[in-house]
Amino acid sequence: MIVDLNSRYGLNPAHSEVVEACKIIEPCDTLDMGCSNGRNALYLGQLGFNVNAIDINSGAIDTLQSIIIEEKMDNIKAQVHDINSASLGKDYGFISCTVTLMFINPANVDAILADMHKRTLPGGYNLIVCAMSTEEHPCPVPFPFTLKAGQLREAYAGWELIKYNEDVGTMHNGAKLQFATMLARKPG
């Protein structure tokens, strides 16, 4: 049974795309890139995934570490890691990167995506949700990086796209923002 740890610790619920992905992905070694305080890592951990949760924010990692200890969740490891280094260091069956890429150095995006490809096991999955900026929908938020139309699809050429869209949504503050959402499976 899943206890709502996120509510217990004042965190947002797990990202809806992570929840959806878990309906088809079996528990495996998983990376939560840009985990922040751990909303997705905690959800995945409760489902039996072995989660490596990384973020550059040491305060967020400290918060997640204290929850892991309090809840005795030995299947989640939280560590400070700069995603910009494009060196994930080990292989995973599932890499989740939701609303993270837009905060990285644009010069590192190709290397980061290439490292995600390399570090995904054959038959494994990548989930990416990232803000876009297009002619029709220029991004109203000054993120360091935004995807262009079709850019994420091109980056995953040769993978099975289980879900892919570039939809406009409304943020909690009312701003209209276009996001690329992709769940892709690496060829086995």
Rank of each mutant, 00 (worst) to 15 (best):
K176D: 11
I61T: 01
S66G: 03
D110E: 10
K176E: 11
F145K: 15
P144R: 01
L127G: 02
L44K: 06
L183G: 04
D110A: 14
K77D: 14
S16Q: 12
I128D: 04
S87A: 14
I112R: 12
I56V: 14
E154K: 03
S133P: 15
P144T: 01
P122H: 09
I54L: 12
K90N: 12
N165L: 00
T181G: 01
A131I: 10
L47E: 04
G34F: 12
K118V: 04
L5S: 04
N165Y: 02
P106L: 15
Q79E: 08
T146F: 10
N165Q: 00
L64W: 00
M102V: 07
C139G: 10
P27T: 11
M116S: 03
A53T: 11
G188C: 02
M102E: 14
C22P: 15
F94L: 15
S85R: 11
N6V: 02
K176G: 08
Y164D: 11
E20I: 13
V99R: 07
P187V: 02
N12K: 08
A180Y: 05
I61P: 01
S58V: 13
S7P: 00
G174E: 00
G45I: 06
E71T: 00
G48H: 07
S58G: 08
A131N: 15
G123A: 03
D110Y: 04
Y9S: 02
M182L: 12
L64K: 04
D4G: 00
I76T: 05
D91F: 13
H172A: 11
N40I: 05
I68G: 07
